[in-house]
Simulated scan of single mutants.
Amino acid sequence: MCLAETLPMTFSYAPTLLQDFPELVSSTRHVADVRASGDVSRLVQPFCDLAARRLDGRSESDLPEIQAWRRAFSKMGLKPTQYRCASEALLRRFRKEGSLPSIHPLVDLCNGISLAFAIPIAVFDLDKVRGGLQVRHAAGTESYETFAGEIEHPEPGEVIFADEAGQAHARRWTNRQSGLSAIRPQTDRILIVAEAMHETAGEDMARLGEALDGALREVGLIFK
């Protein structure tokens, strides 16, 4: 497996979205030649321990990273307690159950880091993405495949991850990814996207990137 420094496709944000959310800070990684085997629990556990310490005596909704996404969801016209960003949903489940289910080594690793930093991390199967991927407002004609295989159409104006074929790979921005580009045992190429909006997002994203790169190297990844 290898961690590439450049993306094999275009990833971008619509200018109008950046105008509405100038506080957004994001970071991407492209992982190629992925292996689905391997135990990453040793690497994931320290991140879970950090999340547990941050949650000690308080709720995930008290964290500044989550509060920033709640404000963003409200700005998009969504109820923050009805539609949660991915990191809040993970933290909420972790707080209640004390652990997260194992899905795929790289997904498990990204989920652990997302827990520790309270920052949403999306992981896409690049072989399911057609052309460039852009975070933008939906026209309402795009197709979104649920994990159950059903096809939905995002509401016009909803923030989605859309490719050039009109496939929506995530709905309500960081709320829910598509089953179409979900990571599977046969997945070979992965795009990782981390996004934050809180006051110290820049420095925290840099630390997240260092943690992610270090963990990926630990499981046998190298830079091209």
Rank of each mutant, 00 (worst) to 15 (best):
M205I: 09
T200E: 13
G179Y: 06
R207K: 15
D163M: 03
D188C: 15
E142C: 02
E145F: 14
I192A: 06
R217G: 09
H169F: 00
E210M: 10
A165T: 01
T187Q: 14
A196M: 04
D204K: 14
E158M: 14
E218Y: 07
A211G: 09
T200N: 13
R217Y: 11
E203V: 03
E199K: 14
A215Q: 02
E210S: 11
G166Q: 10
A148Y: 09
H153V: 01
A170L: 05
A139Q: 14
A201N: 10
M197V: 03
V159C: 10
G157K: 06
A196P: 06
S178H: 00
G214C: 05
T146C: 06
G157A: 07
E145I: 13
T200M: 07
V193M: 09
W173K: 01
M205D: 05
P156V: 12
A215D: 04
A170F: 08
E142I: 00
D204H: 12
A165F: 01
A201W: 08
Q186L: 11
T146I: 08
D163E: 05
R171P: 09
E199C: 10
R176E: 08
E210A: 14
L191N: 04
N175Q: 04
V193C: 12
G157L: 05
T146M: 06
A165P: 00
A196S: 15
R184W: 03
A162I: 04
R217T: 13
N175C: 12
T146Q: 11
T146H: 08
R189D: 15
I160K: 04
E142V: 01
E199A: 15
A170E: 07
L216P: 00
A206R: 10
N175V: 12
F161Q: 00
P154F: 10
S178Q: 01
T187L: 13
A211Y: 07
P154R: 10
E158Q: 15
G202P: 12
W173R: 01
A206L: 05
T146D: 09
Q167I: 07
I190P: 02
W173Q: 01
I190Q: 06
A211S: 15
A201T: 10
Q177T: 11
F161H: 05
E203I: 00
E195S: 15
R172G: 02
E218K: 13
A182F: 10
N175P: 00
G140P: 03
R217D: 06
I183R: 09
N175E: 07
G202W: 11
I190V: 14
E150P: 00
E164N: 04
M197I: 04
P156R: 12
R176G: 00
P185V: 04
T187C: 13
Q177W: 02
D213N: 05
E203K: 03
A206G: 01
T174K: 12
G202A: 15
H169K: 01
E218D: 15
T187I: 12
A215T: 10
R171C: 07
E142A: 02
G166S: 10
E195L: 14
E203C: 00
E158F: 05
A211K: 11
T174W: 07
R189M: 03
A162Y: 00
T146V: 09
R184F: 02
R184G: 06
L216R: 01
R207L: 15
V193D: 03
E210R: 13
I151A: 10
R184I: 00
E218M: 08
E152I: 08
T187M: 13
H169I: 00
E150Y: 08
T146W: 04
E150Q: 12
T141Y: 05
D188P: 08
I151V: 15
A148K: 14
R207F: 09
